[in-house]
């Protein structure tokens, strides 16, 4: 056995792991990188400084499973007059001109086999921040809860909510 062989093997072994970490770092969830949304919408201004209620824009949060994203027209109803010279608002207006919806990148993604209803959770008295954190302080929305089953079940158990599989797995 040549003298250098073990060293080379070791280098290859550790190099492989190093590469793995590099790959992990490269492919970390895109939602956690900055500027991933088509328009840099600041919740800090709308929900924070102005203090708009969540359901002013997310209209169906108390009425259906989806909280709902506001239509472009809703944004424009105020922004036809406010801050129209800013580049991000210009982007918004161009969406309206083209008649296209804004393709927001989804941050809170649940698997297809999960049935989740905002209505239920809001009507049980939960605050939005219980699952979404302090959205009003986020310049760009981040996911601050794991949204994993163990977490859902902990809360369901502690609040006496349904524990039946079919409640969420439909």
């Amino acid at each position: 056995m040549p003298k250098w062989l073990p060293h080379i093997l070791l280098c290859a072994y550790f190099g492989g792991f190093l590469l793995l970490i590099a790959v992990l770092a490269w492919f970390r969830p895109a939602a956690h990188r900055d500027n991933s949304q088509p328009i840099a919408f600041p919740h800090t201004v709308h929900a924070g400084r102005l203090g708009l209620a969540c359901n002013f824009c997310h209209e169906s949060v108390a009425h259906g499973p989806q909280a709902g994203m506001p239509a472009v027209a809703k944004c424009v109803s105020c922004h036809q007059a406010i801050a129209t010279e800013r580049p991000e608002i210009q982007k918004l207006l161009s969406y309206q001109k083209k008649g296209e919806p804004i393709r927001w990148r989804r941050i809170h993604q649940l698997p297809d086999f999960i049935y989740f209803s905002h209505k239920r959770h809001v009507s049980s008295g939960l605050d939005c921040s219980a699952c979404h954190g302090a959205i009003a302080e986020m310049k760009e929305v981040r996911r601050v809860r794991s949204l994993q089953m163990g977490w859902c079940l902990s809360c369901h158990r502690s609040r006496g909510a349904s524990f039946d599989c079919a409640t969420c797995h439909k």
């Binding site: 939960l126 219980a130 954190g133 302090a134 601050v144 006496g160």
Partner: peptide
């Protein structure tokens, strides 16, 4: 971070 620590105090369950 502050944003993640918000909302950890859950409201009491109604009737409990």
């Amino acid at each position: 971070t502050g944003v993640a620590l918000a909302g950890l105090q859950l409201p009491p369950v109604a009737g409990q």
